[in-house]
């Protein structure tokens, strides 16, 4: 594993834990898109079905299990435990506009027309756009809590670092996966606008708020 991949995985883990911790400590999921969190739970579930069919390494298995468990815990906190604080009116992104085209694309463009492969491809495509309900919610309310922006930054950083990991692997291992690379590029581009706001506002101690 190269350094980019290593930092990326822990950045991803940090993002997931920051979000869980924020919700648990504040006893509130205000400002968090439950829809994005459901999409991430679907992403992890469909991608990590290979936990049942193959063993790669203890690291690989542990991280997959942690990601899946934390994503379900987050969904549980939002829709069950702290449901009263969930801001459903502002979480109005139509997820079917993501899931249906992404499902169709996964059936059309994949490595192998087999159930597990299609689900893996579906998860890669879906992950690239799963943050959109969250970004839509922030654009609708015009603001985000600082802790939420830290979560988003870690989540965006993770996929950006994977791009470096893929460049590394191409040069040193001759390995590349076009599906993951294209989806990863799309995913990273979606965060660019946010990265700009994070650096120019949040890192300078200001709250992230958008002009009306």
């Amino acid at each position: 594993m190269n350094i980019f991949r290593g930092i990326a995985d822990f950045s991803h883990l940090a993002a997931i834990i920051i979000l869980l911790h924020k919700i648990w400590k504040s006893r509130s999921c205000a400002g968090i898109s439950g829809k994005s969190q459901i999409l991430f739970a679907i992403v992890f579930t469909t991608r990590y079905l290979d936990l049942l069919t193959s063993f790669i390494s203890l690291y690989n298995t542990s991280m997959k299990v942690i990601y899946i468990s934390c994503s379900y815990a987050t969904v549980y906190l939002i829709y069950m435990k702290f449901r009263a604080t969930y801001d459903g009116n502002h979480d109005s992104f139509r997820v079917e506009f993501l899931v249906v085209p992404v499902g169709g694309l996964a059936v059309l463009i994949n490595h192998d027309f087999a159930l597990l492969e299609i689900l893996w491809t579906f998860s890669i495509y879906l992950e690239s756009v799963a943050i959109l309900p969250q970004l839509f919610m922030i654009s609708k309310t015009g603001e985000a809590e600082t802790i939420t922006t830290h979560y988003l930054f870690c989540l965006g950083l993770y996929r950006a670092l994977y791009l470096f990991n893929w460049i590394w692997r191409f040069y040193f291992e001759g390995f590349f996966d076009m599906i993951a690379i294209v989806a990863g590029l799309v995913q990273t581009v979606l965060y660019c606008d946010f990265f700009y706001l994070y650096v120019t506002k949040v890192l300078k101690g200001k709250k992230l708020s958008l002009p009306a």
């Binding site: 991803h12 790669i56 690989n60």
Partner: peptide
């Protein structure tokens, strides 16, 4: 073999 490399990533 490539599939294993792919599935190694998270």
């Amino acid at each position: 073999e490539d599939e294993d490399k792919r599935k190694d990533e998270l």
